[in-house]
Design a protein around this nucleic acid. Sequence first.
DNA 1: CGATTCCTTGAGGCATCTCAAGGCAAGTGG
DNA 2: CCACTTGCCTTGAGATGCCTCAAGGAATCG
Lengths: 264, 264
Amino acid sequence: MNTTTPASAVSAVHFSRSAAGEHAAAATRATVPTPCSTCHLKDLCLPCGLAGKDVQRLDGMMFARRKLKPGHGLYRQGDKFQFIYAVRSGTFRSGLALKDGREQVTAFHMAGELMGLDGLAHGTHATSATALEDAEICAIPYAGLTELAAGNPDMQNIISRLMSREIVREHSLMMLLGSMNAEERLGVFLLNISQRMKARGYSASEFHLRMSRAEIGSYLGMKLETVSRTFSALQQQGLLDVDKKHVRLADLEGLTRTVEMRVH
Amino acid sequence: MNTTTPASAVSAVHFSRSAAGEHAAAATRATVPTPCSTCHLKDLCLPCGLAGKDVQRLDGMMFARRKLKPGHGLYRQGDKFQFIYAVRSGTFRSGLALKDGREQVTAFHMAGELMGLDGLAHGTHATSATALEDAEICAIPYAGLTELAAGNPDMQNIISRLMSREIVREHSLMMLLGSMNAEERLGVFLLNISQRMKARGYSASEFHLRMSRAEIGSYLGMKLETVSRTFSALQQQGLLDVDKKHVRLADLEGLTRTVEMRVH
DNA sequence: CGATTCCTTGAGGCATCTCAAGGCAAGTGG
DNA sequence: CCACTTGCCTTGAGATGCCTCAAGGAATCG
């Protein structure tokens, strides 16, 4: 799909913010723990689907919170897996480093979503997670979670289901990468963001993207210039208005149709 | 990446064997259960990493076995999720149906590998699984497994780790689809098959592919003609010999280098 | 042995990539 | 407050890798 020359590898896209985040720990601030039961994200996050008494058990663990500045890493590829992380606020991107130093984005995470489950496979994180804006997370010790789940099938089920959801999510991304053109990819991406914004009480049709064109491109398997051109193309079709990172989905239905019709 | 016209949608690739497998259940034969502890696949499969007594507990469940003929479905997208399946012999492909009736291949499964974990997310299978040759599976009732895991953290851990492994596997596939060209994709694919063959005691450098060019193409996000041409190109470079489905990796190291150098 | 399926190969077209230039906004230092 | 830098985005022009369409050969099967 792409052309490679040594020259293009040298001029490869690097995400400058991640360079700034090398000493992530130093840049984070620990804050006081918060109980899940009073968290405004409890219906989106880990407690979702759990009975009241189970949520109270979660409260007992008193997850540590941490704030991150844009560009700072939460965990890095290869780090020992100890925690899974729930996004309290802000947006993150996950990605794996390629041999030449570039990073392939594998996911974006919004408030209430969990990160880090990939670390379970081999005991070390397979991806790095980086904050795209001011952000805060809850650090959930995995060992504690399994302990808590030991005598509790409901709890176990939640964890398994969360992981399965990751698998399904990635299935659809694979479909996207494997069989859609640029407009469809960007369309699917925007509609997905739209739904997630809506689920969080924000407008489904107007929002600010937190990630750069290069990051979107990496995620969708296209170059940043193509992302930019595709935004313009969709705008010309009257499907959306875009101004840098501000997006208004002018014709949600039309956009959906574009995506669904052109699955090929 | 692809071009779409109504005409191309009509002439889309269909996997003929799956059409033959619509009444999958009728085509399968139940066979007597087998204990895990004496299974020759126990080091690759579910019991891998479990202590002796835990394996014996698995034995107690006496998983039903089932044989499938090539092209016959094990489960279909949308089926209720009740079992996960371990491949005893043969090869399977998993895939999701696109709106236009084509199927996007998401995985190939070999002996000792598990299928069906994607069903956990929503209680129904997100993919269909189809045998590519004569095959046999163990049907593992998920409910029984969670029961067994309830008082047993080791067991739980195994399940979680298996799921996490799926996530990591798909990460690398995404990387492949998002940032590699045709030669690299096919190279990665072949090296992956090679490793899995080796792990099963077969030759790492010479094997029969069980899937068609179209299936490989769907999996790798390219057209069947491109798969064929890419095989020819790699052969011309002296990296492999290919004759229909028989492949000999003549220069494993060179192939690896091709893949690693050209990550871009 | 005809039908079917699968694979290979060629020719031409097109979607996306590459390379390049320029604009805008925010930050910085004088 | 302004000149300058820097990061990010947009757009154009040309190159190219993969797709589409098409034809033919080989293997399999009833």
